[in-house]
Design a protein around this nucleic acid. Structure first.
Lengths: 204, 204
DNA sequence: TACATAGTAGTGGTCTGACCACTGATTTCA
DNA sequence: TGAAATCAGTGGTCAGACCACTACTATGTA
């Protein structure tokens, strides 16, 4: 009866912290209340507060400085991704979903961006590609393209998903391939560009 | 000098747990040692062990059952994505961007789902629509459709965005409109169905 | 006055021990 | 035989105690 209704304290603390961040419009670099303060304000033990904070920290959302306090951080999935990698690898379904959505978003990106790219953009990107090593090209290219999409939300989602999928999947296609892809874009040849994207994912 | 070399106990515990999982070839459903055992074996306080476990739990990698123990769980990326999203996406996201992405995802949903819907699905949905009040139709319809999409990650993202946008935007279109929309779907008329979606967003 | 130094308050980091609530198995007893 | 009570093990939570570190303040000396 009282079954699933149990919410753990640390979960609640989590929500409260998130709420606090929103209400006070905190952004990166800002300081959170101390553990003891939170503990008192939220009427929870300090250890529970710490459990919540550690969890958020592991996600890479906050940074903790001994003797100073806890600070909001720009999201950078270092440890997270690494940590997840071992687990994710074992589960083909999730990997497929990840790549599926990523492909969809990248496709959308292409169809949105092809009209806004200037000649010099194309030129820039091409020269950058030549200087990159193969595993980094894909992310870089789309990173670049998304800057011209004009929808930050979409961009953020892509970043999120891209970060997650990176460990288990990286494009093996070389510079030439991406140069062709860009070329198709610059000629407003969406069909071909889309086809190229598909190729990227074909073997997976 | 001793600067960045500081590794927190909970981080170490984290690694040890991961190691334990790998060495013992644990897979989903298997049980981890109890908190007290881990505490003793790893020579760490129970609270530190808990910090690690909570963090892993939040990532969605383990499941904890009161009175029973801690168990490995199937990892689902949308857990993490959802969690991160609430932090990452909360920032200045304009209404336009929100709706833009939502429309895109719904469009994708439609083009994926139109082949998998059965006659009885259609019938079900139609009768449900008739019983709903206008503000709830949209969410309900897509909620239903997404159950047939077969990509939980995409579904989760839609849910998230839908929740975010619901406060600022709700479809004013009536039952008839959505019935037509479903009808188009059942006839595999994606063009029309897509057109309908556009209509929903037209005035915004 | 200027500047190094010592002290101090506040913070995160960690551990211990104590309860509670829950689960599953065991024992007890009608 | 079967239901009920008991018990051991587990997670959930808290309070309190130290430690290590940081930033600031007060102190004292040159």
């Amino acid at each position: 009866m009282t079954n699933s209704a149990k919410i753990k304290v640390y979960q609640e603390v989590l929500d409260q912290i998130r709420l606090f961040i929103e209400e006070n419009q905190l952004s990166e670099g800002d300081r959170l209340p101390s553990e003891r303060e939170l503990s008192e304000q939220l009427n929870a033990g300090r250890s529970s507060v710490r459990e919540a904070l550690r969890a958020i920290e592991l996600l890479g959302l906050i940074e903790t400085r001994h003797g100073e306090g806890t600070f909001l951080k720009t999201y950078r999935p270092y440890h997270t991704v690494e940590l997840l990698a071992t687990f994710v690898l074992r589960q083909p379904t999730t990997k497929e979903e990840l790549l599926d959505v990523r492909q969809m978003i990248e496709h959308e990106c292409v169809s949105r961006v092809h009209t806004t790219l200037t000649k010099s953009d194309i030129q820039n990107l091409k020269s950058q590609i030549l200087e990159l090593e193969i595993p980094y090209i894909h992310t870089h290219v789309f990173n670049y393209l998304f800057q011209h999409v004009g929808n930050e939300l979409l961009t953020k989602i892509w970043h999120l998903i891209n970060n997650f999928s990176q460990t288990t999947f990286s494009s093996h296609l070389n510079q030439d391939f991406y140069l062709e892809f860009i070329e198709a874009l610059s000629e407003h040849n969406i069909k071909q560009a889309s086809g190229q994207i598909k190729k990227i994912y074909e073997k997976y």
